[in-house]
Design a protein around this nucleic acid. Structure first.
Lengths: 207, 207
DNA sequence: GCGATTTTCTAGTGCCCGCTATAGAATTCA
DNA sequence: TGAATTCTATAGCGGGCACTAGAAAATCGC
């Protein structure tokens, strides 16, 4: 139908029985559950328990497990992964941006207020559903590509030496971030991860 | 029974129908499968297909899925993870050992002759069986602890400066190794990983 | 109140999971 | 040869998986 309305601009008064749960807080609980256990190891029963709703409500509000996870990834990036893009928007140099990103990652990845590490890094490793694994793989690749273009700009502007290897610095930064995520899930403290971040910055050209 | 014989020193002529497959090559196929897909995403059906045997043969020869995985981890470490311990045994300094380990990891993790990355790093992330996840977590921790004690020895001997942070250098090295494993699984080439390893070594004290 | 509409609850569906009972096949010892 | 022993193949066990049919419940416009 062309006359369909999206959920966003639907009038406040809708017909039929109103939904008995808040969609957004239910989504937040889904984020936490996938974040903690990963896509494959999280069952729909785990989700309905955490979200406090029955299976039919979940399927009506979010579609199947796969599309719920897609939405979870988008919301996770907006709610918990924004520190990285913010660092790149607000810092003046690629080096300062990466340093800030790694240092804030040390804090975020060990925040006791939510599961440890990064959902995009860890939630779909060894996933029996290849499309889900591939989706997060692509997101990780996009992040590293963003690092690289930012570093390349600083090489072009002379902020970084002309012989700096932008591709390698970007991949190295991504690898350290991923290592920090696993270290966080393995129990490392914020201070320990901050020292890892500090060491990683020594790899940058000491202009 | 006290008179039982272990499989190792059992006489060559044993009674009963002989096993129709080679236990060691079957184990190798199990290693490859768990390495590729991880513990949880690998079904017993996947294993029997890869190993070329029926379920009863698998259970008779290796016990259940869990104990097969335990054996796989031990054999994986011996067959594919030995480059790390070898570097630490043969190199004269902690720094040279870590450098060699990281550079050889770049080669091993991208070897086209077997699955990418490191089984101990990636095969039990997001695992619904907590004991399996914990077992590999412990192994990773032991590796980093081994790095640390080796670095600490070089600090004590004066090979490294007295203010070098052994604990941080060890954790950093482990994080880079873990990041390289994920990068390898995400498609990075050997050369790309070698540049990551090269950058990581710049974090060491430039005595 | 009444029909229309939407959500919720209960109770499943079929499928694949790890695992095994049973029967038959292949070997050794006497 | 025959008994004992050990392995293999088939077939299926109970259980949890993602997912849904169907009826009851809660709101709407009128």
């Amino acid at each position: 139908m062309v006359t369909e309305q999206s959920a966003a601009d639907r009038p406040t008064k809708q017909r039929g029985r109103p939904r008995s749960f808040d969609r957004d807080t239910a989504l937040e609980q889904a984020i936490r559950t996938f974040w903690e256990r990963g896509y494959e190891a999280t069952s729909v029963a785990d989700l309905t328990r955490a979200m406090g709703i029955g299976p039919p409500s979940l399927y009506a509000a979010f579609g199947d497990k796969r599309s719920l996870f897609d939405e979870v990834v988008v919301e996770y990036a907006a709610r918990y992964g924004s520190f990285s893009t913010r660092a790149f928007e607000q810092e003046l140099t690629a080096r300062a941006a990466v340093e800030r990103m790694l240092r804030e990652a040390a804090t975020e990845y060990t925040d006791p207020g939510h599961p440890r590490g990064c959902l995009i890094i860890s939630a779909a490793t060894n996933c029996a559903t290849p499309e889900v694994e591939e989706a997060l793989r692509v997101k990780r690749g996009q992040n590293i590509a963003a690092f690289e273009s930012r570093i390349r700009a600083d090489v072009a502007s002379g902020e970084l030496p002309a012989d700096a290897d932008a591709e390698a610095l970007a991949r190295f930064s991504g690898a350290v971030l991923q290592g920090m995520s696993q270290q966080a899930r393995d129990g490392a403290s914020r201070e320990e991860l901050e020292r890892v971040a500090g060491l990683a910055m020594l790899a940058w050209p000491q202009a």
